[in-house]
Protein backbone atom coordinates (compact mmCIF):
# COMPACT_ATOMS: atom_id res chain seq x y z
CA UNK A 1 0.00 0.00 0.00
CA UNK A 2 1.57 3.27 -1.11
CA UNK A 3 1.34 6.56 0.72
CA UNK A 4 2.34 9.87 -0.75
CA UNK A 5 2.72 13.45 0.45
CA UNK A 6 5.02 16.41 -0.16
CA UNK A 7 6.69 14.77 -3.13
CA UNK A 8 7.60 11.64 -1.16
CA UNK A 9 6.07 8.35 -2.25
CA UNK A 10 6.71 4.96 -0.69
CA UNK A 11 5.23 1.48 -0.75
CA UNK A 12 4.57 0.54 2.88
CA UNK A 13 4.63 -3.23 3.53
CA UNK A 14 1.60 -4.93 5.04
CA UNK A 15 1.57 -4.53 8.80
CA UNK A 16 3.93 -1.55 8.83
CA UNK A 17 3.02 1.90 10.09
CA UNK A 18 3.94 5.04 8.19
CA UNK A 19 3.36 8.77 8.27
CA UNK A 20 4.53 11.72 6.19
CA UNK A 21 4.11 14.99 8.04
CA UNK A 22 5.56 18.46 8.25
CA UNK A 23 8.66 19.06 10.33
CA UNK A 24 8.25 20.21 13.89
CA UNK A 25 10.11 23.14 15.35
CA UNK A 26 12.04 20.95 17.78
CA UNK A 27 13.82 19.17 14.97
CA UNK A 28 14.81 22.34 13.24
CA UNK A 29 16.30 23.70 16.45
CA UNK A 30 18.13 20.49 17.27
CA UNK A 31 19.78 20.47 13.86
CA UNK A 32 21.10 23.99 14.30
CA UNK A 33 18.80 25.74 11.90
CA UNK A 34 16.80 28.78 12.80
CA UNK A 35 13.24 27.98 13.97
CA UNK A 36 10.74 28.63 11.27
CA UNK A 37 13.41 28.47 8.59
CA UNK A 38 11.73 25.47 7.07
CA UNK A 39 8.84 23.14 7.69
CA UNK A 40 10.14 20.47 5.37
CA UNK A 41 8.48 17.04 5.43
CA UNK A 42 9.44 14.03 7.50
CA UNK A 43 8.57 10.42 6.78
CA UNK A 44 8.42 7.77 9.48
CA UNK A 45 8.26 4.06 8.68
CA UNK A 46 8.15 1.27 11.24
CA UNK A 47 7.34 -2.41 11.38
CA UNK A 48 5.67 -1.85 14.75
CA UNK A 49 2.90 0.41 16.08
CA UNK A 50 3.95 4.04 15.97
CA UNK A 51 2.59 6.00 18.93
CA UNK A 52 0.70 9.15 17.87
CA UNK A 53 2.97 11.40 19.92
CA UNK A 54 6.64 10.97 19.08
CA UNK A 55 9.67 13.01 18.19
CA UNK A 56 10.89 13.60 14.69
CA UNK A 57 13.87 11.31 15.37
CA UNK A 58 11.66 8.63 16.89
CA UNK A 59 11.68 9.48 20.58
CA UNK A 60 8.61 7.91 22.12
CA UNK A 61 8.71 5.14 19.50
CA UNK A 62 12.21 3.66 19.70
CA UNK A 63 11.74 2.98 23.41
CA UNK A 64 9.07 0.36 22.66
CA UNK A 65 11.01 -1.41 19.91
CA UNK A 66 11.64 -5.14 20.12
CA UNK A 67 14.71 -6.88 18.73
CA UNK A 68 13.15 -7.48 15.30
CA UNK A 69 11.78 -3.95 14.93
CA UNK A 70 12.84 -1.27 12.48
CA UNK A 71 12.34 2.47 12.61
CA UNK A 72 13.14 4.68 9.61
CA UNK A 73 13.05 8.49 9.58
CA UNK A 74 13.58 10.45 6.40
CA UNK A 75 13.95 14.14 7.27
CA UNK A 76 14.19 16.82 4.64
CA UNK A 77 16.19 19.99 5.17
CA UNK A 78 15.48 23.34 3.61
CA UNK A 79 16.60 24.34 0.12
CA UNK A 80 19.46 26.33 1.66
CA UNK A 81 21.05 23.00 2.64
CA UNK A 82 21.36 21.83 -0.96
CA UNK A 83 24.98 22.12 -2.07
CA UNK A 84 26.41 22.15 1.44
CA UNK A 85 29.22 19.71 2.22
CA UNK A 86 27.12 17.73 4.69
CA UNK A 87 24.73 16.80 1.90
CA UNK A 88 27.38 16.16 -0.78
CA UNK A 89 26.40 12.50 -1.18
CA UNK A 90 24.13 12.15 -4.23
CA UNK A 91 21.21 9.78 -4.61
CA UNK A 92 19.06 7.67 -2.34
CA UNK A 93 21.28 5.58 -0.09
CA UNK A 94 21.03 1.87 0.56
CA UNK A 95 21.88 0.96 4.10
CA UNK A 96 24.80 -1.30 4.92
CA UNK A 97 25.02 -3.45 8.04
CA UNK A 98 28.58 -2.28 8.53
CA UNK A 99 27.36 1.30 8.95
CA UNK A 100 25.30 0.49 12.07
CA UNK A 101 26.60 1.12 15.56
CA UNK A 102 24.95 1.52 18.96
CA UNK A 103 26.64 4.90 19.54
CA UNK A 104 25.05 6.35 16.39
CA UNK A 105 21.64 6.48 18.00
CA UNK A 106 20.07 9.82 18.82
CA UNK A 107 19.31 8.19 22.15
CA UNK A 108 21.31 5.15 23.16
CA UNK A 109 19.14 2.20 24.16
CA UNK A 110 20.40 -1.27 25.17
CA UNK A 111 20.82 -3.63 22.23
CA UNK A 112 19.72 -1.13 19.59
CA UNK A 113 21.77 0.16 16.73
CA UNK A 114 21.51 3.05 14.34
CA UNK A 115 22.96 4.88 11.40
CA UNK A 116 22.30 8.02 9.42
CA UNK A 117 23.10 9.23 5.93
CA UNK A 118 23.01 12.83 4.74
CA UNK A 119 22.41 13.10 1.03
CA UNK A 120 20.91 15.11 -1.81
CA UNK A 121 18.36 13.65 -4.18
CA UNK A 122 16.28 15.40 -6.83
CA UNK A 123 17.81 18.70 -5.69
CA UNK A 124 16.45 18.14 -2.18
CA UNK A 125 18.58 17.67 0.96
CA UNK A 126 17.75 14.82 3.35
CA UNK A 127 18.90 12.83 6.33
CA UNK A 128 17.99 9.16 6.46
CA UNK A 129 18.07 7.85 10.02
CA UNK A 130 17.52 4.15 10.70
CA UNK A 131 17.19 2.38 14.05
CA UNK A 132 17.32 -1.39 14.43
CA UNK A 133 15.92 -3.15 17.47
CA UNK A 134 18.97 -5.37 17.70
CA UNK A 135 22.56 -4.68 16.66
CA UNK A 136 23.16 -8.44 16.66
CA UNK A 137 20.43 -8.93 14.04
CA UNK A 138 21.48 -6.03 11.83
CA UNK A 139 22.32 -8.20 8.81
CA UNK A 140 18.79 -9.65 8.51
CA UNK A 141 17.06 -6.38 9.38
CA UNK A 142 19.07 -4.34 6.87
CA UNK A 143 17.61 -6.44 4.07
CA UNK A 144 14.10 -5.41 5.16
CA UNK A 145 15.13 -1.75 5.34
CA UNK A 146 16.56 -1.79 1.83
CA UNK A 147 13.49 -3.57 0.47
CA UNK A 148 11.37 -0.65 1.63
CA UNK A 149 13.86 2.02 0.53
CA UNK A 150 13.88 0.48 -2.95
CA UNK A 151 10.25 1.57 -3.33
CA UNK A 152 10.92 5.17 -2.28
CA UNK A 153 10.30 7.82 -4.92
CA UNK A 154 11.18 11.47 -4.32
CA UNK A 155 9.93 14.16 -6.66
CA UNK A 156 12.30 16.93 -7.74
CA UNK A 157 12.25 20.18 -5.79
Amino acid sequence: MRIRADGIDVDVPRGWDAEIYRQREATIQSMGADPGETDAPIMHLANFSLPPSRGDWGSGAVEIMKSDNIFIALCEFGPESVGKALFARQGLPRVDAADFAPHQLQRTLPGQSGTQYFFTHANRAFCLYVVLGSHARRHELVAEVNAVLDTLVIDPA
Partner: peptide, 14 residues
Protein backbone atom coordinates in the same frame (compact mmCIF):
# COMPACT_ATOMS: atom_id res chain seq x y z
CA UNK B 1 -4.26 12.32 10.43
CA UNK B 2 -6.27 15.13 11.99
CA UNK B 3 -3.34 17.41 11.13
CA UNK B 4 -3.55 16.43 7.48
CA UNK B 5 -0.52 14.14 7.33
CA UNK B 6 -0.54 11.05 5.14
CA UNK B 7 -0.69 8.01 7.38
CA UNK B 8 -0.97 4.25 7.19
CA UNK B 9 -1.61 1.87 10.09
CA UNK B 10 -0.77 -1.83 9.98
CA UNK B 11 -3.62 -4.13 11.00
CA UNK B 12 -2.94 -7.63 9.65
CA UNK B 13 0.46 -9.27 9.69
CA UNK B 14 1.39 -7.67 13.02
Amino acid sequence: TLKGSAVKVGVAGV
